[in-house]
């Protein structure tokens, strides 16, 4: 995607004088309804909270203070580092990371397999991978829960085969959340890797083979570096939405262990009603994601310069 975005684009300037008008709708809609809300949220994170929802227009660092500093149960002890929210973020990163690794473990071989099919058969395979993604995320998550339940088809099947003696408790565990995230975003892993492997020129590995490199050496030294941008893109596309996800932990995890998404939701729609804190948590999440994307963009740029 990134490589294609550059090629051939500077060639045409047919509508140069209309550029402003062509871009105006996109600019105005996105500036007003996408950028402005995010900026507004940034502002809210520095305001004073109103008890049970809402803000008072007074500057305050209380939201960030609450996030990073622990002043004890009663709020009057000397500040220490607050681990509660860091732990929630850490759990989210861990859950999203586990889901990403699972997706990579299954997604890479799949993408590789598809990309090495005859050119005619490939679109059909890609098609097969993408169809489930078009089904509502909610329905997919609930289907997953139905499948994994204690009296669900999976346990019934395993009991029937005699693989287990008593039903596995999967729903309401961290594993269920990871499986849910893995299932939600798997195609995001497969597609970029597929695109990268498909572009890979297998003549390179032939050359290596001619030089008597072993198969695994060729794979590690030549193919993997060549498809690395695709792998990284896939990981990001799975990791980022998993990080802020709300449905999987809520429906599959039993709402027992907060992830970032639930923490933020609770500030606006649930028990807590602390808007500035919810805004601050959102801004910290957004910062994390943007840093990650920035690192990715740098890595892509470096990869492009090399090739």
């Amino acid at each position: 995607m990134a490589a294609g975005a550059v090629g051939g684009s500077s060639a045409s300037s047919t509508y140069r004088e209309a550029r402003g008008w062509l871009l105006l709708p996109a600019w105005s809609v996105l500036l007003f309804f996408s950028l402005a809300p995010v900026i507004m949220m940034l502002v809210y994170s520095f305001l004073t909270k109103e008890h049970r929802g809402g803000v008072i227009w007074e500057f305050s660092l209380a939201a960030y203070d609450q996030f990073f500093l622990d002043r004890g149960l009663f709020g009057d002890e000397p500040p220490r580092i607050q681990w509660t929210y860091i732990a929630i973020f850490w759990r989210s990163i861990w859950q999203a990371g586990a889901a990403t690794l699972m997706s990579l473990a299954v997604g890479f071989p799949t993408a590789y397999f598809i990309a090495t099919r005859p050119a005619k058969a490939r679109p059909l395979w890609v098609f097969l991978i993408t169809i489930p993604y078009w089904v509502n995320l909610l329905i997919r998550t609930v289907s997953m829960k139905f499948l994994l339940r204690e009296q669900g088809p999976l346990n019934d099947f395993l009991l029937w085969t005699g693989a287990i003696d008593s039903p596995l408790q999967i729903v309401n565990t961290n594993l269920a959340v990871q499986l849910g995230l893995f299932y939600s975003y798997l195609p995001f892993m497969v597609l970029p890797i597929y695109a990268a492997v498909e572009r890979y020129d297998f003549a390179l590995s032939e050359a290596a083979a001619d030089l008597y490199a072993s198969k695994w050496t060729t794979l590690r030294r030549i193919l993997l570096p060549a498809v690395k941008p695709g792998v990284v893109a896939g990981c990001i596309l799975v990791f980022v939405p998993s990080l802020g996800s709300f449905l999987a932990p809520d429906l599959l995890g039993g709402a027992r262990n907060f992830m970032i998404g639930s923490l933020i939701e609770e500030q606006f729609k649930g028990n807590a009603g602390n808007w500035p804190f919810g805004a601050a948590a959102s801004m910290i999440l957004l910062t994390l994601v943007l840093l990650l994307l920035l690192a990715f963009a740098r890595q892509q740029a470096r990869a492009e310069r090399r090739s």
Partner: peptide, 16 residues
Amino acid sequence: AETQAIYDRIWTALKQ
């Protein structure tokens, strides 16, 4: 409000 803030902390720590 002041007391509630303490209960909020207990609740968040519970669900954390």
